[in-house]
Design a protein around this nucleic acid. Structure first.
Lengths: 205, 205
DNA sequence: TTCAATGCTGTTTTTTGATACAGTCTGGCG
DNA sequence: CGCCAGACTGTATCAAAAAACAGCATTGAA
């Protein structure tokens, strides 16, 4: 069902408010903007928009006007990956409390495809082009070959390093001369959490 | 100033609400979620968070809690950017024949938002964490400040370099000791095609 | 012409939501 | 030990907001 010109204006206003203010308008905001004399004018338009599926109206909720065109949940066929920020010592990497955000991307561009994202802290991998605050995309797997960049857990610490193996020996190698390799012994509580498959940097120096 | 553990929880809840409901919570929502007996508990936490700059509190506005860490609502705006591969000598950068692919991403994560993507060739920017075959996201603008990473055209050549200006002088500086800076004179056919705003790497060594 | 839908005015009621004030308890710090 | 900040309880007030009820003037299609 099509919107009338007037309804289009109302919807545009709502979307503009969400973009510019970060919050949907109230009925009173709509009244002020269009010069209505009654909040009911706004209410009727909102009901019409809701009937046509242009917005979701939540009853008895302040500003419960959700434009369905910009709903995060209705965004294309792209996938959301949890973005893990600071990893709390002792909790599993993927624990909910570590979720900092979600990022939306086309997983199929990466091989193998990423399962979660990790905000890298520190500069121990700068020679591999992974800088402080970069987002590392990680494929969840316990298996990795020597030379690959992995997310590894040693005790309570989770780090991003290059995995090295020779014979029986395993160590984690930073890509920065100012750091030393970490040697892993059979006695350590060591696990590979995943394999680095990509990097996203959202700000450049 | 650092957040206390409890304040961190409150902030996480607010951010989660924004992501999942599309709206920030009310004081009452916070009270329900944490089992508080009084809205004032929530209010005090919010004030503390605002004092520390974690949120913006809008007085006398329902749900006027704006988490400053999370971008408000833009999550739905997934866009396709043209990916420019090898730039043909002499043609405009954005000419159709240069389009190698399209990449789909959430432009709102980058500031300013990118208009096209460029496959970087060569290692002249490795010290800036931009490697051979990386995808550079570019905001189309002729303006850039000294120190920023730009996509510049000198005659028929398009390159990614760090822009340097001092007084009248302009030069393009690689981030790799094995390359020399390129000095730009007024006589050159020089133009800034855009500003680097992000990097995507789809394969790691 | 009659019906339904749009686009309003005007009024009222109820709920939601923000915020202020007065306290309590706890743990860390000098 | 006293003091302060953080983390609350409990109460209260008032403005903001949602929503219901009752109308009315157009317009356009059955």
């Amino acid at each position: 069902m099509e919107l009338t010109a007037r309804q289009r204006e109302i919807l545009d206003f709502i979307e503009q408010q969400v973009r510019e203010n970060g919050l949907p308008p109230t009925r009173a905001d709509i009244v002020r903007h269009f010069g209505f004399a009654s909040p009911n004018a706004a209410q009727c338009h909102l009901r019409a928009l809701a009937r046509r599926g242009a917005i979701e109206l939540r009853s008895n909720q302040a500003r419960g006007i959700i434009p369905l065109t910009v709903r995060p949940t209705h965004a294309g066929g792209l996938d959301f990956l949890p973005l893990i920020g600071r990893v709390t010592a002792g909790t599993p990497v993927l624990a909910v409390e570590n979720h900092e955000d979600e990022i939306q991307l086309d997983r199929s561009r990466f091989r193998p495809s990423p399962d979660f994202a990790l905000r890298v802290e520190g500069d121990s991998m700068i020679n591999a082009g992974i800088l402080d605050r970069d987002v590392l995309l990680v494929h969840r797997t316990p298996e990795a070959r020597s030379g690959q960049i992995v997310v590894a857990r040693l005790g309570d610490e989770v780090t991003v390093k290059r995995l090295r193996r020779r014979g029986r020996a395993t160590w984690l190698e930073p890509a920065n001369d100012r750091y030393d390799s970490i040697s892993v012994t059979g006695a350590d509580d060591f696990a590979i959490e995943g394999l680095g498959v990509g990097v996203i940097r959202t700000r450049l120096g």
